[in-house]
Amino acid sequence: MKKGFPFASVMIAILAGAYFLIPLYATFQFSLQMVRGEWSLAAYRAVLGSNVFLATLSFSAIASFTAIVLGALIVVPTIYWVRLKLPRLRPLIEFLSLLPLIIPPVVLVFGYIRLFGSNSLLPLTTSDVGTNALLVVGYVVLSLPYMFRAVDNGMSVIDIATLTEAAESLGASRLRTIVSVIFPNVRSAIVSGAFLTFSISLGEFVLASLLNRPAFGPYLVQIGQDRAYEPAALAVMTFALTWACMLMMQIFATKKPGTRLLPRFRFRPAKEMPA
């Protein structure tokens, strides 16, 4: 039977696309109208020329990178161990990893402040370094569902139990197995999780604001209250950055070892050799 034109599906796709793209385009157009009567990039120049912009962006970038490294160091060995030795604990670990989606960041940060405030046994909030550490840990927690899922998916693709046994039968210690065999084979999954972590924590507001850190999220809110065109330019730039992250994630997630980033450089699969 010949299929008709999928009218309903196409309409839904157009509506959904319009819902997303029209406000984005409107924001972009508004960001170009800073100079009255002409299109210009003045709003972008103003943003990029601001020291506060660069300072807050680099602060958030460093905090995000630290969160990525810490998150990977916690998540990868945990998932590896649970999959290898404690598969019955997997539902529990999965549930725990999803908690940050249920518990609002504001609850998390008030918990931190109570636990690590000036009256506590470990008064982290009394120093800059301590508060920064709390912020990073908070980012790790917020990105846990994404990092967990990305790495867990990565590990489900490779047979970690057999690879571990293969490495051990060749004399490798557990640490060497993780470093030489497991980590490289889930690298693309870790990178995917890392880009998600980066895009979440870069513009994060609640934790940074309530911990009073000079981060990019509070700067975005602040400038939104004070200025008209710059926030629009910032919104467009943040979108572009997030999309770049998604693109990188996609490239790394589908990249195979021994191939360049462009698909035309891939090897052809070998044919069976007559024995």
Binding site: E165, A166, G171, P184, P257
Partner: peptide
Amino acid sequence: VPSRQRNIGMVFQAYALFPNMT
């Protein structure tokens, strides 16, 4: 004795080659 100290070679049904290595 742990498997890594036995010096016993093993070939698996599913090959188990390390995908990240040549």
